[in-house]
Design a protein around this nucleic acid. Sequence first.
DNA 1: ATAGTATTTGGTCAAACGTCCAAGGCGATC
DNA 2: GATCGCCTTGGACGTTTGACCAAATACTAT
Lengths: 194, 194
Amino acid sequence: MGETSIERGRHARARLLVAARELIGELGWNAVSTRTLAERAGVRSGLVHYHFDSLQALLRHAALAEVQRMLDDTRALLAEATSPSDGVEQMLLDLDQYNGADSASLLFVETYLAATRDHELRQGMSALVADFRDSLTEALTRSGHPSPQAAASAVMALFDGFVLHKGLDPGLSAEQVAPLLRRVTNTEEDGERR
Amino acid sequence: MGETSIERGRHARARLLVAARELIGELGWNAVSTRTLAERAGVRSGLVHYHFDSLQALLRHAALAEVQRMLDDTRALLAEATSPSDGVEQMLLDLDQYNGADSASLLFVETYLAATRDHELRQGMSALVADFRDSLTEALTRSGHPSPQAAASAVMALFDGFVLHKGLDPGLSAEQVAPLLRRVTNTEEDGERR
DNA sequence: ATAGTATTTGGTCAAACGTCCAAGGCGATC
DNA sequence: GATCGCCTTGGACGTTTGACCAAATACTAT
């Protein structure tokens, strides 16, 4: 209707980004083509190279935006929690809404992989992940964890690995693993007492 | 030379599998083509469909064989160790020989992802992974771990996630994380004592 | 030597790919 | 209502893709 050209353009651009976000997870990073992308977004394929420099640039942009959104959401869980241990457990339980084979989970892993082969994407992802790890490290430090940085690394590795494994074995449940995760985030030194 | 046809054939087939193993990690599962594969293996591209039903079948075969080999090697570390905790730590330190961006690490992750989109591959990977987890669970059970199955799941998720993160941040070191991993594999209940 | 079997070659095929661009559409501005 | 600028279209381009196959080659058995 009363839509200016620029508004229409922004709209189309946004639809392309949404389509990219979905298709990266559904088909895999390298299997997303300009034509499937355009079809999903409801536009003609020529538009891709009007709004973006290249297909790779589109995918990069879409992936980084979505990863940032997911990390921010997750960070909020940590901030609301009464302790880092509780926060990390909330994050883990939150992960159970994904089955490991949905497009959101897979986009995450696909982006990790694509980042090893795309320098610009790698820089973006590194920054986002480092940022998140810093938040986690800081929270653990405040709570008096003896090795907060290592714990943050371990927790994040466990999360992403958990998603990876859920894709293969949907039987994996967060509740089962949660108590063990607490061992990692616990403030006290480990329980070797004899 | 004095090579029978069948021997030559087996040789070529093996070279194709080696090339696939390398290229899946280097280029990504979906970026491996019959022609690059043939070039790397030193054969003509027509041979691919003589020795294998399809390109996907070749990749599947190569990936499963390599994953099985890696898991068997890792299992050996567990068997040689004096306790599951030591074994798991050995496994983690062993992981440090990969930088997360080498073709061996990436092949593993690529195969996880491809398995979510290829039914046959998924079955093969599920079996291998379940098998390995059973070994780990059994070892943890013998050592008296309170929740051996959950611990095995957690350890494996942490391993694969660790590899994933090393691809982005090569600064990650196994030594740093090892003490925290021990918290997970420890026999005793977690250290919440008050 | 001959016939038979397994492997390898070199090329063809249609389909899909990323990128680019001339032309047209369309609301805003004068 | 003409003009301008941004957005969109539809098609073209040169490559690359997986698959397939008839012919050539190499070894084996008769």
